[in-house]
Amino acid sequence: MSYEMIGIIVLWMFLYGYLIVASVDFGAGFFAFYAKITHNDHIINQLISRYLSPVWEVTNVFFVFFFVGLVGFFPDTAYYYGQTLLIPGSFAIVLLAIRGSFYAFENYGSKKSNIYMFLYGATGLLIPASLSAALTISEGGFIQETEEGVTLLAGELISSPYSWSVVFLAIVSVLYISAAFLSFYANRANDYHALELVRKYALFWSVPTIIASLTTFIALSQHNMEHYQNMIDLWWMFGLSLICFFVAIWLIYRGFYYGLAFVFVMLQFFFAFFGYGAGHLPYLLYPYVTIQEGATHEAMGLALVIAFILGLLLLIPSLYMLMRMFLFDADYVKGKK
C-alpha cells in the first residue's frame, strides 16, 4: 500500500478516535450543566468528573495529533485549509481554550462556579459545530482560488442546507454518543440513579441522530453528486451502521449489556465515518487537493510511517494502562479509590 493511503487511514482513525472520545467529553459537559440547572447535579456530576478528570488532556491530544498529522502527510492541506479556515478555525481554538482551561479551573481549582459550568457546557456543543465547518468545506463549492490565493465563500457556507445539516448532526450525535457512554459508566459504578437519567438521554438523542444522518445524506446528494454516488456504492457500510444503531438502542432500551451497547454505538459511527471517508477519496478538498497530489515527498512519508509505528508501540500500552486504571477498574469507577 502506498504511504499516502496509510497516511489517510491513520489520520482517519485518529479523527474517528477523536470523534468518540471528544463526543463523550463534550456531551458530558453539556449534561453536567443541564443537570445543574435542573437540580440533578448531585446525581451525575460526580460520575462525570471521575471519568473525565484523568483523561481530558488525552482527548485533546487526539485532535492535535490529527491536524499535525494532516499537515505532515498532506502539506497542501495546510495551504488550502489554512488560508480559508482562519475565522472558523480561530473560533474553534477559542472555544477549545475556554473549555479546556475552565474544566481545570472548575475541577482542580477550589471554586465551584456556575459561570464556569455554563461555559463548559455551552462550548461542548459549539466546538463540534465549528469543527464540522472543515468537513463541510472539504466537499468543495465553498472556496475560490484566484491569483492572489484562496478565499472562503462565507455566504455560500452559511446559506447551504448541507452545512447546517452537518452542524445539526454533529451536535445531536455528540449528545447521543456521550449518553450511551455514560450509561455504561454509570452501570459499571452501580450508580442506578445516574444510570436512569443518562439512559433516558441516550434514548432521547438517538432519534434526532438518525434523522440528521438521513438529512445529511440527502443534502450531500444535492451538493456533491460524485461523493454521494461513491457513498451509494458503499451502501453496505451504511447498512451495517444502521444495524449497529438498532442493536445499540435495543440493548439500551432493554437495559442490559451497556458495555456492548456502547461498542455497537462505536461501530455504528465507525461504519458511517469510514463509509463517508472512503467515498470522499481521492479528494481531501474537492476538487483542489487529492491524496496523491497533496501528499508529502516519499522520504518524509516513509519517515512519518516509521515514526507512527514506533509511536504506537509506546502509546498503545500506555493507553491500555490508563484505561485499566480509570475505566475498567471497578473500585475507581465506584469512587472508592
Partner: peptide
C-alpha cells in the same frame, strides 16, 4: 507550513 509539512513534519 506547506514547505514545513514537506520537510519538517517528522
Amino acid at each position: 507550513m506547506q514547505i514545513a509539512g514537506n520537510v519538517i513534519s517528522l
